[in-house]
Design a protein around this nucleic acid. Structure first.
Lengths: 116, 116
DNA sequence: CAAATAAGGTACGCATAAGTATCTTACGCA
DNA sequence: TGCGTAAGATACTTATGCGTACCTTATTTG
């Protein structure tokens, strides 16, 4: 299949890289998996606690981007203090099985690989 | 499944992130796909030409790491000038279907997402 | 004698990613 | 009056990824 590289050898069109550019950063998949494994919607501070070592700045940025990409939803309840609930969208959920399959592969193969 | 996050909320153990840390950089998946779509082994300069815009430094670094991780093999023929052939290993090939599935997902969903 | 050739190595610098620390808002409550 | 609370915003600093430019090696060929 030549769908993944242009014939002129340019690199602009490569779906795999599109995905990695979007979710290949330090926190995105972790946020998605945390949402998937939590009870339905999770609040901002719940996410922060479950992930543990994410900085507030990066969690905010990651959530904002995930929302812009339509992978999670953000529901604001304008109370005082405010309450915000995050949840996976259908599109976000449709990505997760692929991530889990990657995780399975990793569990089988990364042990030897990981001499970091 | 709680396999992906530790119960103490630490982030050290997450297979998905292990994979992304290893192959989530700018060139790794592209090299793997290029090898997969080329005729069996490819030489260094063939890779460089097919990928097009990868710098020599990054291609070298990427190949070295892929080799360290056992995802590609490197066969050196000590001629003058030297000849080196790179090919996917069985482990490398076992990862590719997962990448292609991610690519399919991307083709379906990233069009809307990508307003970069 | 000098150039070309294949596969790199190395030094330097910029741009971006990520971390840290401080500030904000609006209200209830002591 | 001022403190706590939830969800951020912002400025500043540090770390990392990547690119550019130049060097190297050993041999054949003009």
């Amino acid at each position: 299949m030549k769908v993944f590289l242009k014939n002129d050898s340019s690199v602009d069109f490569c779906p795999v890289r599109d995905v990695f550019d979007r979710i290949g950063d330090k926190w995105t998949v972790l946020v998605m998996i945390t949402l998937d494994q939590g009870e339905s919607p999770l609040r901002y501070h719940e996410l922060q606690e479950r992930i543990g070592d994410v900085s507030q700045k990066m969690l905010t940025a990651t959530l904002k981007r995930l929302q812009e990409d339509g992978l999670i939803s953000r529901q604001l309840y304008p109370e005082i203090p405010p309450r915000v609930e995050y949840a996976l969208t259908a599109r976000g959920e449709s990505l997760l099985p692929h991530l889990y399959r990657l995780a399975e592969w990793a569990s089988e193969h990364m042990r030897d690989v990981k001499k970091v």
